[in-house]
Design a protein around this nucleic acid. Structure first.
Lengths: 213, 213
DNA sequence: ACCTGAACACCGTTCAAGT
DNA sequence: ACCTGAACACCGTTCAAGT
C-alpha cells in the first residue's frame, strides 16, 4: 500500500476525481479512503465531516469561475462566459447547488462570483437594485440548467444523444388529440446540446434584464 | 396499533405529509412504516422501491399544476401562474427536480405541463421551434429557483428573514476595496420573498423570449 | 501528531415465514 | 393476498488504541 501523506488538498483532489468518474452519489467515505490508500476514517483528521469536505470541493470548483474573464467595456460576453463556467462547475457536483445556500460560511469564491456579476450589470447601466435582481435571476437560471442536466452529465455523448432521441420519440408518439403542440414540437425538443439551450435561455434573460434603449 | 389498510394513495398521502413536516432528507422507509402503523417493509408490497414511491409522489404534486389555469387569449398570466405552481410543487420535493430527468417513464403530469407551456407560447406568436426553446428556458429557471430556495423552505418566515438579514450583513461587512459592488448592493440583495424574485426573473425572461413587436 | 480498526447507530432492500 | 421480522449489505461517524 502506498504510504499516502494526507493533506486537505490531496483529499480534495481525489474526491473531485472520484466524483468526476463515478458521480456524486457514488462518493462514500469508505471509497474515498480506499482511493487515498488510507483507512476511511483518516479523512476525519482533516475535515470535520463529509459536508465540510464537500464545501472544500465546491470552493475548489468555483474558484476557477472568475479568473481571466474577458475584460474591457463589453459586459455581456463576460457575464455569459462566467455563467457557462459556473454551470460547468455546478455540473461536476449537482448537490452543490442547493448546498451553497446551506452552510454558515459563505465562501470566498462565491463572493468573487457575486462581485463580478454585480460589476458587469452595473457596467451595463443597471442601477444597484436592478443589478441585484439581475444577479439573482441569472444564478437561478444557471443553477436550474445544471440541475436538469446533471443526470445526463455522467453519460457519454452517444448515450446522451440516444436519450434525447428517445424522449423525442416519446413526445412524437403521444396522442395528437390530447397533446397537439407537444407532438408538433417533438422534433424541436432537446435540440442541440444542453449548454446550447442554456446559452439561448441566458441570452433571452439578459435581453429582458438589460433593455436596449 | 391501528390496523391500517395500505393502498398506494394512502402511502403517497403519508409520504407527502412526512416530507412536508420534516423535509425530504428525513424520509426513511422505517419512518414511513411507523407513520403508517405498519412494518416498514410493507410498503414494498405496493412500490418496487423508494424511487418508484417518490415518482408517485411527484406525479401527485405535479398533477395540480395545470388544472384550472386562467384561460382566454392572454398567454402571459397563464404561463406565470403555471410556473409559480410548478415552483411550489418542486419546493415540496427538491430532489424531484433532478429525478424528473432520470426515470424511464415520463409521467402524465409532465406531459400536461409541457403541452400547456408549448400551447401558450404558440398563442404568444412563437413558432414551434421558438416555443420549444422557450419551454426549456422557463423550466430551467423554475427548477433553479426551487433548488436555491429549497433549503430555506423548511424554515419559518421568521427564521428565513433572519437568514436573509444575516447574509445582507455578511455582504455589507466585506472589504469595500475588494468587493465594492457587493457592499454597495448588500441592502438590495435577497429583497422580498424568494417567490417575488422568481416572478421578477421569469418576467424578464418572458420579455426576452417573446419580444413585443 | 497522525492513522487504525472496531464499533455504533443508522440506511434501503430481500425473503422466508406467518396469518 | 398481504404483512412481519429477521437478516444482509451497506452508510457516516466516533473513539480508544496504536505508532
Amino acid at each position: 500500500m502506498s504510504r499516502a501523506t494526507l493533506s486537505r488538498d490531496a483529499i480534495v483532489d481525489t474526491t473531485i476525481r472520484l466524483i468526476r468518474e463515478h458521480g456524486a452519489d457514488a462518493l462514500t467515505m469508505r471509497g474515498l479512503g480506499q482511493a487515498l490508500g488510507t483507512d476511511p476514517t483518516a479523512v476525519y483528521r482533516h475535515f470535520r465531516d463529509k459536508a465540510e469536505l464537500l464545501r472544500a470541493v465546491s470552493e475548489r470548483l468555483l474558484g476557477t469561475v472568475t479568473i481571466g474573464l474577458p475584460d474591457g467595456h463589453e459586459w455581456r460576453p463576460a457575464v455569459v462566459e462566467l455563467c457557462r463556467r459556473l454551470r460547468r462547475a455546478l455540473l461536476e457536483q449537482p448537490r452543490l447547488a442547493t448546498a451553497l445556500q446551506f452552510g454558515p460560511p459563505l465562501q470566498p469564491s462565491e463572493f468573487a462570483i457575486t462581485e463580478e456579476l454585480l460589476r458587469r450589470f452595473c457596467a451595463a447601466g443597471l442601477d444597484i437594485g436592478a443589478a441585484a435582481l439581475a444577479y439573482h435571476s441569472v444564478i437561478e437560471l444557471t443553477v436550474g440548467s445544471a440541475a436538469i442536466d446533471a443526470a445526463m452529465h455522467s453519460m457519454s455523448d452517444r448515450e446522451r444523444s440516444q436519450q434525447y432521441t428517445r424522449w423525442r420519440s416519446v413526445y412524437a408518439a403521444l396522442d395528437p388529440a390530447e397533446y397537439p403542440e407537444t407532438v408538433a414540437a417533438s422534433a424541436a425538443m432537446y435540440r442541440g446540446t444542453a449548454e446550447d439551450r442554456f446559452v439561448h435561455a441566458l441570452g433571452r434573460l439578459l435581453d429582458g434584464l438589460v433593455p436596449t434603449r
